[in-house]
């Protein structure tokens, strides 16, 4: 028995809400990328464990260069530089990993085909890397203070501002350059070679700000401003140029 006339004019999705393409907002896409990276890290714990142990080794190796216990003033003067050098090298090991994961099973090509904005991929990845390096800092900084027998003379609470800002400055450009070097020959070698020269002003600012807090001789305000300016300028540059490097070939 045929249904009533007109029933053959089948309209898909009739009576329901019309299809809507690309229903996720930008924030939702970023959060999806972030959730995925955090879940991967939670299951494997590769990046954080590697970075933690690496930075601990750097702290120990640097203690071979001078005796921090006997020279508290010297320790205060150079610890700002040492801790950032340790974190920088540690972060470098994780930044490469964070993108090479995406190469397995051509996930990166899937990202390129996806309708989602590509800068959201960058933001998600950068935020994830920021959280990983911050986690390492939370463990490393107390260890560093104990090992190097540090007694900061400035206002220590300002470190709570300087550490995240410095990490952000490292991680934004680090994530970008790791993506840039992703499909080059020996990318592990290339990343520090291109990241370090560009990061030099940021490194100077974070090291000076930290040293100013530790020695208490000057206010770190100028260097915090430099860091903020650096982060703003380069975040904008990264967001604009990320799509270009994602589709580089």
């Amino acid at each position: 028995m045929l249904p009533a006339s007109g029933a053959f004019a089948f309209v898909p999705n009739a009576g329901r809400k019309p299809y809507k393409m690309n229903t996720m907002s930008y924030t939702q896409v970023v959060l999806a990328h972030l959730r995925k990276d955090l879940r991967l890290e939670w299951r494997a714990k590769d990046s954080i464990n590697g970075m933690l142990f690496f930075s601990l080794l750097v702290v120990v190796v640097l203690a071979m260069a001078f005796d921090p216990g006997s020279y508290p003033t010297l320790a205060r003067q150079i610890s700002g530089g040492l801790i950032w050098v340790g974190l920088l090298f540690a972060a470098m090991t994780a930044l490469n990993q964070s993108w090479s994961r995406e190469l397995q099973n051509s996930v990166l090509d899937a990202h390129r085909l996806a309708a989602a904005p590509s800068s959201a991929l960058f933001v998600g990845k950068a935020v994830a890397n920021f959280l990983f390096v911050t986690a390492v800092e939370l463990v490393l900084t107390p260890v560093f203070v104990i090992f190097y027998n540090l007694h900061p003379l400035g206002e220590t609470w300002k470190l709570l501002l300087i550490l995240p800002l410095g990490t952000l400055a490292l991680v934004v450009n680090g994530t970008f350059f790791a993506a840039l070097g992703l499909r080059t020959r020996n990318r592990e070698t290339l990343l520090p070679l291109i990241l370090l020269p560009v990061s030099m002003p940021a490194l100077l600012a974070m090291i000076q700000a930290t040293t100013n807090v530790l020695t208490g001789e000057r206010e770190p305000t100028l260097w915090i401003k430099v860091l903020v300016a650096y982060i703003v300028v380069f975040t904008i540059a990264c967001l604009f140029l990320f799509e270009t490097i994602l589709n580089a070939d």
Partner: peptide, 14 residues
Amino acid sequence: LLRSFSAPGQTAVL
């Protein structure tokens, strides 16, 4: 260095 490290098709963009 980046120019000498990158794959020929990508050198210019990167």
